[in-house]
Computed example of a mutant assay.
Amino acid sequence: MGLKRTDEFRQDAVRIALTSGLTRKQVAGDLGVGMSTLNKWITAHRDTDVVSKEDLSLAQENDRLRRENRILKEESEILKKATVFFASQKP
């Protein structure tokens, strides 16, 4: 039978999973729990105040900004490659 985790541990795991910016897989691995276990804890604590609305809102904004930043970096790399390509094309 698996190791019994305290309610405090579960709540901390949920808080980390929802606000850290890490993937659930990373959080589960770091904490030594299975993905399905972590997902069950998140589902069970979804409607509780484990994470304040403000913290959750900030975490969601951070996720959005990380995605936007990744896309902008990818676009920048594409433009750099295009600049090098067109600069090497001599008429």
Rank of each mutant, 00 (worst) to 15 (best):
1 M>V: 08
4 K>P: 02
6 T>A: 07
6 T>W: 04
7 D>H: 14
9 F>I: 08
13 A>L: 08
13 A>S: 14
14 V>A: 01
14 V>H: 02
16 I>L: 15
18 L>D: 01
19 T>G: 03
20 S>C: 02
20 S>L: 02
23 T>K: 12
25 K>V: 11
30 D>P: 00
31 L>K: 14
33 V>N: 06
33 V>L: 04
33 V>G: 06
34 G>I: 03
35 M>Q: 09
36 S>V: 10
36 S>F: 05
42 I>F: 01
43 T>M: 09
44 A>V: 09
45 H>P: 00
46 R>D: 04
48 T>S: 15
50 V>R: 01
50 V>Y: 01
52 S>V: 06
55 D>F: 00
55 D>K: 01
55 D>L: 07
55 D>G: 00
57 S>W: 01
57 S>R: 13
57 S>F: 04
57 S>N: 10
58 L>I: 07
61 E>Q: 15
62 N>C: 03
63 D>W: 03
65 L>R: 15
66 R>K: 15
66 R>A: 09
69 N>W: 03
69 N>Q: 13
70 R>T: 08
70 R>F: 07
71 I>S: 09
71 I>E: 11
72 L>M: 14
75 E>S: 11
76 S>Q: 13
79 L>I: 09
79 L>D: 06
82 A>Q: 14
84 V>G: 00
85 F>N: 08
85 F>Q: 08
87 A>K: 15
